[in-house]
């Protein structure tokens, strides 16, 4: 395997002195889709915030593209802008659909984004809604706008935090297909947080199980589901885990 894109060592995150995440070691490789699974409240979303550099770790180091960051130093804007997240809720701005999609490019000083916006809107099937106000969209449409808004940035890493929870099967299928395509055609690295093990199975190359803020097991998808190394993974995959 190639050099990892991310490498976390002894990373700990605590809020008000209470540790919610403790990762001894975790690597993310370029071009892969890594799924983080586990019951809710085990620190999956916290981990994504660390990977997006939205918050610094309390302890430990995060290596990203060969540079090592601990909680002390500011991550350079240029590095931070290589990563973006699509959250469970779309969080659209109270503007038009196309303004929402163009937002990230505008932040980067790119004013002439009309063609790119039209292009990504077509890819998520919303070319006709470009002029519409974002708040008039349905839940599925809004999440597709959120995805388009991230896609247009061509990030090195796309973080997906339960992107299809609460969506209907049509929208789930559509979003999964777009994600798979982006990964296949652009070799975009993705970290997917999901509590849906079937989604992890459908999309991911590797899967990691988190329990109580710790990584229990990381394995290629096939191994993870068919020959889990840890009894807790086996229980989780069988659906026996009580949570």
């Amino acid at each position: 395997m190639s050099e990892p894109l991310y490498e976390l060592r002894q990373v700990e995150k605590a809020y008000h002195g209470r540790s919610v995440l403790h990762i001894d070691e975790l690597a993310v490789y370029p071009g892969e889709i890594l799924a983080l699974v586990g019951p809710s409240g085990v620190g999956k979303s916290t981990l994504l915030r660390l990977l997006n550099f939205l918050e610094p770790p309390t302890k430990g180091t995060i290596m990203f593209r060969g540079q090592v960051f601990n909680g002390q130093q500011e991550v350079p804007l240029a590095e931070r802008r290589r990563v973006t997240t699509v959250f469970q809720r779309p969080f659209l701005l109270n503007r038009s659909v196309k303004a929402n999609v163009a937002y990230g490019l505008h932040l980067r000083g790119n004013r002439d984004s009309r063609e790119q916006v039209a292009d990504v809107l077509a890819r998520v099937g919303l070319q006709d809604q470009a002029q519409q106000r974002a708040r008039t969209l349905s839940g599925g449409e809004a999440q597709r706008v959120a995805l388009a808004r991230a896609m247009i940035l061509q990030p090195d890493v796309l973080l997906l935090d339960e992107p299809t929870a609460n969506l209907d099967p049509y929208n789930v299928g559509m979003i999964e297909e777009i994600v798979r395509q982006m990964n296949a055609t652009q070799a975009m690295t993705m970290v997917l947080v999901t509590h849906n093990i079937f989604q992890a199975k459908r999309l991911a190359h590797r899967v990691a199980l988190l329990l109580n803020g710790r990584v229990v097991e990381t394995a290629p998808t096939d191994t993870f589901f068919n020959q889990p190394g840890d009894p807790r993974t086996a229980a989780f995959v069988r659906g026996d885990m009580v949570y």
Partner: peptide, 8 residues
Amino acid sequence: MNKKWLWF
């Protein structure tokens, strides 16, 4: 985005 600045 453009519109926002317009109003400001």
